[in-house]
Design a protein around this nucleic acid. Structure first.
Length: 194
DNA sequence: CAAGAGATCATCT
DNA sequence: GATGATCTCTTGA
């Protein structure tokens, strides 16, 4: 069943933890791809110096200030796209970065898009999973609670063992870089880094 | 295997 | 004008 907006409206860290084990579904003219979410990161608000919203309300961060359940897709290093899902109430700029997926459906399509057949390398990183699932600027601000082309499904799996570590690539964020807000499914072979 | 460089551009100063 | 919530490839031990 598709995850409703009320789920995304909760505390960002809680959403980041609970997204683990859920399924990201992407419907595209070329085919449907599905991946199990195995790694996430929480960006909790404007006071969090690692969060893009700490730069203030700008054209880029506008989506994060809006309603929960929308996709925040941004371009980084002139090369890659990254997918986040906006959390908490309207006006609270926070989001969860989807960092890695375990490929479940449409694996051949992912292999074609990624140019590799190594399954552990198809979606084990935020830039890689966006390539594998054809996610780019066109999906920025998409409503994942109501939309049909990009959403998250709960397939009713039991609770998972979760491991928390500091977030990746945010050394510039002062004391915020050490917050243990990166969450992984313990033992998963599909995370970006162990 | 680890370390380093390059890719390449939207966004903010 | 600088830089980044990344990834791949090359180099060298």
């Amino acid at each position: 069943m598709k995850i409703p907006r009320s789920f995304y409206a909760q505390d960002t860290i809680k959403v980041a933890r609970q997204l683990l084990g859920k399924y990201l579904v992407r419907k595209h003219p070329d085919g449907t791809t599905v991946g199990k979410i195995v790694e996430t990161e929480a960006y909790v608000g404007p006071h969090d110096l690692a969060c893009h919203a700490s730069k203030g309300r700008t054209a880029r961060t506008e989506v994060m200030f809006g309603a929960p359940g929308h996709a925040y897709v941004y371009f980084i290093y002139g090369v890659y796209w990254c997918l986040n899902i906006v959390t908490e109430e309207v006006g609270h700029a926070s989001a969860v970065l989807i960092r890695a997926l375990e490929p479940i459906e449409g694996i051949e399509l992912m292999e074609k898009r990624r140019g590799t057949e190594k399954i552990h390398n198809l979606a084990s990183g935020p830039g890689k999973l966006c390539l594998a699932m054809a996610i780019d600027k066109g999906l920025n601000a998409a409503d994942m609670a109501r939309g049909k082309v990009l959403y998250v499904e709960d397939r009713g799996e039991p609770p998972l063992k979760i491991r928390a570590t500091p977030r990746i690539g945010v050394d510039y964020a002062g004391t915020w870089k050490d917050k243990p807000w990166r969450f992984l499914i313990r033992g998963s072979e599909f995370v970006s880094k162990k």
